[in-house]
Design a protein around this nucleic acid. Structure first.
Lengths: 231, 231
DNA sequence: CACATTCGAGAGCACTGCTCTTGCTTTGCC
DNA sequence: GGCAAAGCAAGAGCAGTGCTCTCGAATGTG
């Protein structure tokens, strides 16, 4: 065990390198032709190894996809967090739109990865629990903005009908006990709606319908923020 | 040509029947295991024919998928139109939420078909122009509600920043010259956001986050309507 | 009735995910 | 330093896929 960390580390490092190379190549092929056409054999071929060797690193194609999914969530989450940090002094609404635009831009740059995480789930595949934290990052950024706004008194509480109150209280307790229940519920809705805008643009539903997409999105995202209580 | 329609119709009818049987079986398998795992061979096998015979009816797997896509859009569109008609005297907001809930219910009943039309697009595949009219039906229903509201003076025009005005005017000219530009732009945004809510629920993003989904959705859809100028 | 068109069946190609066995190399312990 | 053990790549092989082609047989049309 004295020098065990280096010797054992050598093996582990080699393994980590090959694993990373596989993921890199897989990501490249994913970007090139989408998740549905991602082939283990093609990845192995590009790496100069035989397909069966790849199973030493990923027990199945779905496990490779899971790794790519986690990476995609992390990549997007990082981008959103960076955009938020960069506009820390732009006020709640400025931060919100900055994050929203960062999400949109990331999606446009990585359409296949976006489709992988926010598009149709793979039939037999169900995401393992390890994907949950990375998947929450964008939501947590938006939540942080609302929380800061609330702390500084810049958050107006949206109206909430009596029927929704119990659910809103449950949501607030779950994800932000310091926020008014109505704000928590409004945030979740705005969060989903934000990705509706991004997805529709990305998946071609805006074809010939929205032309100036940057302006349209910016305005829609800002209205979403106001709907969640920011201004 | 005197009796041509019956004799020629015999062959054509047989062909139409087989085509329908293929689509039916394909739809069944689609609902069972999703588009990604939809196999021509499995469909053929279930129908007691050999895979190559299927190519007499659909030149490729993608063409079969296109047929299913059109059917799905039509099925959803019909449902939305029916919901709208059923609540014709519920006022604009009542019609809107009825349509929104119909869309949600259809999606929950046909998750794989929903994923087919609003989820990740198939990699190489690009939807032919024939899918456009069926794909527009839900949007046209929502547009009709706004148009009626506008005619009866029940539509408030949402605020629109100067930067968005040209685009809003273009959109209004394109899809509803009788509507105020701001309303047209707000409608498109609300439309996309509505499907964001549905998609997030269907694709599992609301897992452990939203429990009382009917109430949550109803409230969010109603707020969407108000954002588009209805109340 | 004879012809031409349509159709189903089968074989086959190139590809996929995945499993299993066979050796080789590296590693960690005695 | 030597040796057993573990890790690893390679290859063969299985069952399945989309799709093409050819070859008879059925079928509706002139």
């Amino acid at each position: 065990m004295s020098q065990g960390s280096t010797t054992e580390g050598a093996r582990a490092r080699a393994r980590a390198e090959v694993t990373a190379a596989i993921k890199d190549e897989a990501r490249r092929r994913l970007a090139a032709e989408g998740a549905a056409k991602l082939s283990l054999r093609a990845v192995a071929r590009a790496l100069g190894m035989v397909s069966s060797a790849l199973y030493r690193y990923f027990p199945s194609r779905d496990d490779l996809l899971t790794a790519l999914i986690i990476d995609a969530y992390d990549s997007l989450g990082e981008r959103a967090e960076a955009a938020d940090a960069r506009s820390a002094d732009a006020g709640p609404l400025g931060r919100w739109t900055a994050v929203a635009e960062a999400v949109r831009e990331w999606a446009l740059e990585h359409p296949h990865e976006y489709a992988l995480i926010y598009g149709s789930p793979v039939p037999g595949y169900s995401a393992p629990a390890t994907t949950v934290p990375p998947a929450s990052r964008v939501g947590l950024v938006l939540l942080g903005i609302l929380r800061d706004a609330h702390r500084s008194g810049a958050l107006t509480t949206p109206p909430v009908p009596a029927a929704l109150l119990p659910e809103a209280e449950r949501m607030a307790a779950e994800l932000a006990p310091d926020l008014p229940p109505a704000s928590a519920a409004a945030l979740v809705a705005a969060w989903a709606q934000l990705f509706g805008l991004v997805g529709f643009e990305l998946f071609g539903q805006f074809h010939r319908l929205v032309e100036d997409r940057v302006t349209f999105f910016r305005h829609a995202a800002a209205r979403l923020a106001r709907g969640a209580g920011l201004d």
